[in-house]
């Protein structure tokens, strides 16, 4: 049986991508084998959105007398990106605990492909879920202003997802236990509430409001509102006035930190 040698850096990079795509395709086959899990992945945020919109919509007063959904939708888009943290973690921890990661590590594939594949698959999944939620938004009357703004906002949302991906990988490799994901899942909602996704940080008690404003999710959501042309509560703190740059800086920072941590953690699985 012929096995191609991986020697020059270029060939190795090519194999890293090729193998990464093969690993990612595994998730695509999961979706094909069990389409209901994808459907639920899309339906879950839609249900939460409708619940929040119709239950609390009447109680929350939005500036300019706009509809609550116009305010809520970008928050929900951001929330959905946040939920990605635990789904990445669960996938990584399950593979590590079931020995699938070890099988990959004992094979002549590019070692980096395990992480690259996870990144590709989870980003694709988030694109599908986000598309479903955007459609839901349009159905309940949410409207973006311009196409270019929309593309920019979606780009920023996926950038946050990309950053959280590495955090999820690190936590998954650290715990190697799908059971530990519950702890992260229970934290996702508080993190989401402690942001501008559902209400204005200005309405929170002083220090809590400050925490909410500095929440990376708030920057992404505020920037998305701005780009979609949807109403937001500006807030006059520095971080609130610089939502757009911060929506790039935060994810970049998270990516750098957790990329390094995950890669190191992965390389040290042999300790």
């Amino acid at each position: 049986m012929t096995v191609t040698t991986l020697d020059s850096p270029v060939t190795r990079a090519r194999w890293a991508l090729a193998d990464g795509w093969t690993v990612a395709r595994r998730d695509l086959i999961h979706w094909a084998n069990q389409p209901m899990t994808v459907v639920f992945g899309v339906v879950f945020p839609v249900v939460i959105t409708l619940a929040f919109g119709y239950l609390f919509g009447g109680a929350v007063k939005v500036p300019d007398g706009a509809d609550y959904f116009a305010f809520l939708m970008p928050g929900m888009y951001g929330m959905t990106m946040l939920f990605g943290l635990s789904s990445t973690m669960i996938a990584v921890a399950t593979d590590a605990s079931k020995g699938v990661t070890d099988r990959f590590r004992s094979m002549p594939m590019a070692p980096s492909a395990v992480l690259i594949g996870r990144a590709i698959a989870d980003l694709l999944h988030s694109v599908v879920v986000l598309a479903g939620l955007l459609a839901c938004g349009l159905a309940v009357g949410w409207r973006p202003a311009t196409l270019s703004g929309t593309l920019g906002a979606v780009g920023l949302l996926l950038l946050l997802r990309f950053a959280l991906l590495w955090a999820g990988m690190y936590l998954g490799l650290l715990t190697r236990d799908p059971g530990a994901v519950v702890a992260v899942q229970t934290l996702e909602f508080p993190i989401g509430f402690l942001s501008n996704a559902f209400v204005a940080p200005g309405t929170m008690p002083g220090w809590l409001g400050a925490v909410a404003e500095w929440n990376p999710l708030s920057s992404t959501v505020a920037a998305a509102r701005e780009l979609f042309g949807n109403p937001g509560w500006g807030g006059d703190s520095w971080v609130a006035r610089h939502a757009l740059p911060m929506a790039v800086v935060w994810p970049a920072l998270i990516t750098v930190v957790f990329f390094v941590l995950s890669v190191r953690r992965y390389q040290r699985l042999d300790r």
Partner: peptide, 21 residues
């Protein structure tokens, strides 16, 4: 056992085959 439980036997082996280049 380190196989992907959501894939069929064939899908598992084809996947590992691709990863063996």
């Amino acid at each position: 056992a380190a196989v992907d439980e959501l894939l069929t036997g064939r899908q598992n082996l084809e996947l590992f085959g691709r990863l063996c280049h």
